[in-house]
Design a protein around this nucleic acid. Structure first.
Lengths: 327, 327
DNA sequence: CTGAAAGCGCTTACAG
DNA sequence: CTGAAAGCGCTTACAG
């Protein structure tokens, strides 16, 4: 069937061991190396990674489990992770849980079966309590969502700071009836909600938070009635860009203009948030940094397993646009 | 280190072969099966996929090489492919070329080293001529972009029909100076350009096509001068959603209102194309179908290698919105 | 620097 | 139905 290292060895007139060394970093004379390289070209040989991994006991693979690849935040983080891995000569296995704990559990199992070198994980909210119980044979770095303290390295946004910034911004623009819409499937939604509520109280205002399944459609449904209620919010803080789409749709369906009738502030600086009139005020997350930092934490832990658990908290950047400026 | 099948065998009081059979589809008595399952639980055993693949000569893996995972079209197709694969009990290796032929070549090599069962590929334009020369050990299905005729199965959009539809729509709205902006990195961009030019001539109009690197920023740069030229187009056909973002930005920078000063029609029904005022007229691609069909073609070819080469051409759906309605 | 040999963890004919 | 044995394609001590 496929060309093996033995075929190359035969063609080069050397032993399989020498072929292996010539392709890797082993000591081989220039003469034999040239013969091997010629034989590789002649035979079209490609090493079998399954065999290599089995023998070397090193998968050379990083696992990456994200919650929703449709969320551009995770797409961007994935790209950063893959770039880092590629540079380090490692492969990435990307899996998408869709916020489903069962799928997450099955992917976690897959990571073991693949014997990954390390794992970068955005855990579903339901898996939070499971994390300490689950024994893993490889280092784990949590992204976007922190787990139980002191368990795994993590890199997250400063959600408290970000929500405080948005609330302060809205208050400074004169808004007082500020509602909040948060995803119910992640600790991130929960943290942003807490940050929002704390900030509201600090300003002497009454928080008015709602939770929704993390999709545009669910968010739109949740907003439908709320925006038509007499006590509807005049401004809205929305915890991610998928929900934001639903909010905008609901506002339009209810005949509410942004920002005149309803101010809106969200998360993630997607291209479209600038294009949709009057421009959306958002917290921009340092997506590249999150991915890169996660890989750094992973590599450092692989090198020095005894390191204390580290939590890296990154700041977002508030981009003010027309959606919060009723003037 | 890790628990192996021998450890499970010892714990269950059976041979490794029996453990293997109990975990697979082999014939095992209910009694021994129960013992094995208990031993698996007790030991926390996870099969080593590298070993399994090496021995069984079956990677159980589908390769998926896309051109740009930031393009939501490919994100959506990827999800469909992964769903199909998951249901078939297969894994997917997702790689992203960023339209770089070198990266594509290196990923193609990776696919060989992983001994993938089959490959789904959106080839870069530069690789088009290489395709026939490249010998592959597994079936390949091309998506989004067809290769040389008769070489590989493929599933593509009917680009000619789609562009004809858009041109006819614009003409029916009274536009005659209709320009076209197309990506220069893919055969898709080229096909849409040809379709556009043919349709323009059919309507007795002069085509005015420009090419650009496939990013929002490049598109914006390309449009900058064009939109300020005296002979600027009054309507614009844009070949994907990334370019569309650049076009909208450039139009705004030039102070042109959509659609009053410039009508715009594009591809891919992203959420934001509805939200950005006055709504973008687009061709919606059947992304789910594309992914699913690609997997079907692959599985059918694996089952029946002798099948003739098939090209599945799917129709897009034209969604008319305000961006082409200056009325 | 080079080769012969062992072995990574599985699966699968081969006997029974 | 079950087990002993061979072997998938590599890499890596071990000798020389």
């Amino acid at each position: 069937m496929s060309v093996s290292i033995k075929d190359v060895a035969r063609a080069a007139g050397v032993s399989p061991a020498t072929v292996s060394r010539a392709l890797g970093r082993g000591p081989v004379s220039d003469e034999l190396r040239a013969q091997v390289e010629a034989a590789v070209r002649a035979t079209g040989y490609r090493p079998n990674l399954a065999a290599r991994r089995l023998r070397s006991q090193d998968s050379g693979t990083i696992g990456l489990i994200v919650a929703d690849i449709r969320n551009p935040f995770f797409t961007a983080v994935s790209r950063a992770v893959e770039d880092s891995a590629y540079r380090a000569g490692m492969r990435v296995i990307l899996c998408n849980t869709d916020e489903d704990p069962d799928r997450e559990a099955s992917y976690l199992q897959l990571m073991h079966e693949e014997r990954v070198t390390g794992l970068i994980l955005a855990p579903t909210r339901a898996s939070y309590e499971q994390l300490p119980k689950r024994q893993v044979d490889f280092p784990v770095v949590l992204i976007d969502r922190a787990g139980p303290p002191g368990l795994h390295d993590s890199v997250v946004l400063d959600n408290r700071e970000a929500t405080a910034t948005l609330v302060a911004h809205l208050v400074s623009r004169g808004y007082r009836q500020i509602g909040g819409l948060f995803g119910n499937a992640s600790s991130t939604g929960a943290e942003r909600r807490e940050g929002y509520e704390a900030a509201m109280r600090q300003h002497g205002l009454t928080p008015d938070a709602r939770l929704t399944a993390p999709s545009s459609a669910a968010a739109q449904r949740e907003m439908q009635d709320w925006l038509r209620a007499p006590q509807r919010p005049r401004a809205l803080l929305v915890s991610n860009s998928l929900l934001l789409i639903g909010v905008i749709r609901a506002a339009r369906a209810a005949g509410l203009r942004i920002p005149q009738d309803l101010a809106v502030a969200g998360f993630d600086n997607e291209s479209w948030t600038e294009l949709v009139e009057p421009g959306m005020t958002v917290i921009e997350q340092p997506v590249e940094d999150i991915g890169r930092t996660a890989m750094s934490l992973l590599f450092e832990r692989l090198k020095t397993p005894g390191l204390p658990v580290r939590k890296v908290v990154l700041s977002g950047r508030c981009i003010v646009r027309g959606s919060t400026d009723a003037a």
